Simulated scan of single mutants.
Amino acid sequence: MLTDLKTILADTREKHYAVGLFNCVTLEMTKGILAAAEELRSPVIIGPAESLLPGASLAEYADLMLGMARRASVPVALHFDHGFTPELVEQAIRLGFSSVMYDCSMLPFGENLRRTREMARLAHAAGCSLEAEIGHVGSNGSAEEAIAQTVYTDPQDALRFAAESGCDALAVAIGTAHGVYAETPRLNLDCLARIAETCPTPLVLHGGSGLSDADFRACVAGGISKINIFTHNNLAAGRAAHDHWTAERGAFELMPLVTEAVKRETAHHMRVFGSTGKA
Rank of each mutant, 00 (worst) to 15 (best):
A125M: 01
L254H: 08
S42E: 04
A240T: 03
A49D: 10
L189T: 07
L205P: 11
Y61V: 02
C191L: 15
F109L: 11
N188C: 11
T176S: 11
C219I: 02
A247R: 11
E87A: 12
A169F: 09
L203T: 11
A125D: 15
L2N: 06
L27P: 02
Q156V: 01
T26V: 02
L34F: 07
F161K: 06
I229P: 12
P48K: 10
H232I: 13
G83E: 08
P48F: 09
F252P: 11
G83F: 00
S212G: 06
D190G: 15
D11T: 13
G110P: 02
T85W: 03
I174S: 02
L88Y: 14
I227A: 02
L211G: 00
A123S: 04
L113V: 09
A35E: 14
L107W: 11
S51R: 14
E38A: 10
M65V: 05
Y61R: 05
G277R: 15
M255N: 09
N188T: 09
S209C: 04
E265T: 12
G83Q: 09
R94G: 06
L235V: 15
L66K: 03
M101S: 08
V151G: 12
R115A: 15
G32H: 06
C219A: 13
I174T: 14
P185T: 07
A177E: 12
A162I: 10
Y181H: 05
F80I: 06
L211E: 04
A171R: 01
E145L: 07
S139I: 00
H242L: 14
A240Q: 05
N228Y: 06
L159E: 13
G141D: 07
V89N: 14
A18W: 05
N233R: 01
M1N: 09
Y102M: 15
R114I: 04
T85K: 12
I45M: 05
E118V: 08
N234G: 12
E14N: 10
I229F: 15
T231S: 11
G238V: 00
P155K: 09
A18I: 12
A143K: 08
M101V: 13
T150I: 13
D81K: 00
R117E: 07
P108Y: 05
A214F: 02
I147S: 03
G179N: 08
V137S: 00
T85I: 02
G141L: 04
L21I: 08
A241M: 13
E164C: 06
